[in-house]
Simulated scan of single mutants.
Amino acid sequence: MTRYALITGASSGIGLALAEALARRGRSLILVARQRDALESIALELNQRFGVEVLFRACDLGEPLRLSGFLLELEEGDRQIDLLVNCAGIGTCGPFLAHDWSAEQDLIELNVLALTRLCHAIGNMMAVQGGGQILNVSSIAAFQPGPWLSTYFASKAYVLHFSEGLREEVKKTGIKVSVLCPGVTRTRFFDAAKMNTDTVEQSTGAMTPEEVALYTVRALEKNKAIIIPGRRNRWITRVPRLLSRWMTRKIAASINKSYCPR
């Protein structure tokens, strides 16, 4: 029976790059994102280039009812998923109190609740199948507080700690759990979050989605718990351990302000 890798946030950025990297390795895919036209085009291209089966589903995972419908389809279907990649995510930038609450709620619904629900539903399917692998996408932001991006940093800290805890819980079921923590990556994320893209362009340590994806698939094959692409990014995650909490907050605030609109 064909087994599939299900990738959320697959229409662009790291999600798309991971889809291509897995297709190159002969993996059948189920791609999920909001943009149906983009998914259809990507599925056709990957099928033609790599000869793999690529299914897709347009779904706003941040909408609980739509997510419920999607999960019901998966549960009632006969397709086995042996790799779940939770890549869908959004950010908000600027003073927390100045944001509309709806924007903050959307972030939490997608970055935290949808990811957790997918892990629960598909994790249970994997347990029945005898195993599988889950990759949750966090960020190097998860290792410190993030003034001016407070909700986003907190959501990624949740993903990191949840993934590490889940990894230990499900070992005996045959399910492997990893968490990806990339640094600044040249994607549409910054435009979508209305952030200052000039700062991203000037970042000497920024990676391409393809570089992140290549490092990630190799790390997944080794079943690494925490995947941090880039030597500079790995160093950055260690810095908060060496500094006081107040200094970490001050430095993060200074850096994050440069990303926020003036």
Score class of each variant (00 low, 15 high):
201 E>I: 06
37 D>P: 05
187 T>C: 10
144 Q>M: 15
48 Q>Y: 04
179 V>M: 06
102 S>M: 03
74 L>S: 05
230 G>S: 12
195 M>H: 01
50 F>D: 01
141 A>M: 10
41 S>N: 14
194 K>M: 09
16 L>E: 08
195 M>E: 04
6 L>D: 03
54 V>E: 03
239 V>M: 13
103 A>E: 15
47 N>M: 14
68 S>I: 01
24 R>W: 09
14 I>K: 07
216 T>Q: 07
209 P>G: 11
167 R>T: 03
255 I>D: 09
230 G>R: 06
65 L>M: 13
238 R>V: 10
160 L>H: 05
119 C>Y: 00
183 G>L: 08
10 A>F: 07
201 E>L: 11
96 F>D: 07
184 V>M: 06
25 R>S: 12
74 L>M: 15
190 F>H: 11
38 A>F: 06
40 E>C: 13
25 R>Q: 15
77 G>W: 09
234 R>C: 10
163 S>L: 06
87 C>I: 05
68 S>N: 10
117 R>E: 08
238 R>I: 09
167 R>E: 10
224 K>R: 15
8 T>Q: 05
225 A>P: 00
229 P>E: 13
132 G>P: 03
198 D>W: 01
220 L>Y: 07
163 S>H: 04
138 S>H: 04
187 T>G: 05
222 K>Q: 10
149 L>S: 09
148 W>R: 06
195 M>L: 08
248 T>Q: 14
242 L>G: 11
255 I>H: 08
186 R>Q: 13
184 V>G: 02
184 V>R: 00
73 E>A: 04
175 I>R: 06
77 G>K: 12
225 A>H: 01
